[in-house]
């Protein structure tokens, strides 16, 4: 279980890091895939890892996976919406800067997750 969590953490971190240079330059297809993935699920996945919703094979959390996925995507989309909307109303429109902000948010959550004691688990029925 811990291994699976680590893989998800590494993958999320990789997407967040890769998105920063790709928001400025790179092949269009790759930029669309990486940045699209970050905006769709980056900050939310990091948040869900921080909250410790565990995969369904855990006897304690048989119902947590659908909720975890839903929250991961909804939070990422919500943050993408709010960052972009704040930029446009503040007349600071800069899509690459918005992507960098989302990447930073993702990495901060992942950093907090690393610092958090490992034994804390969500109890789900």
């Amino acid at each position: 279980m811990a291994t699976e969590r680590s893989y998800v953490s590494y993958a999320t971190a990789a997407v967040a890091v890769a998105a920063i240079p790709l928001s400025f330059v790179g092949p269009e297809g790759l930029r669309l895939a990486v940045i699209g993935l970050l905006m769709l699920a980056g900050p939310g996945t990091a948040l869900v890892l921080l909250l410790r919703f565990d995969p369904p094979r855990s006897a304690q959390a048989t119902g947590a996976l659908p909720l975890s996925i839903a929250i991961a995507i909804a939070f990422s989309l919500a943050m993408s919406t709010l960052v972009a909307t704040a930029m446009i109303y503040a007349r600071l429109w800069s899509p690459p800067a918005a992507v960098c902000l989302l990447s930073a948010l993702t990495l901060v959550f992942l950093g907090l997750e690393l610092k958090r004691p490992k034994r804390v688990l969500v109890h789900a029925k």
Partner: peptide, 15 residues
């Protein structure tokens, strides 16, 4: 809000 997300995606990827 929704269009800002699409605009960000388009602007940041050059698509």
């Amino acid at each position: 809000g929704f269009f800002n997300v699409l605009g960000t995606l388009s602007g940041a990827t050059g698509a």
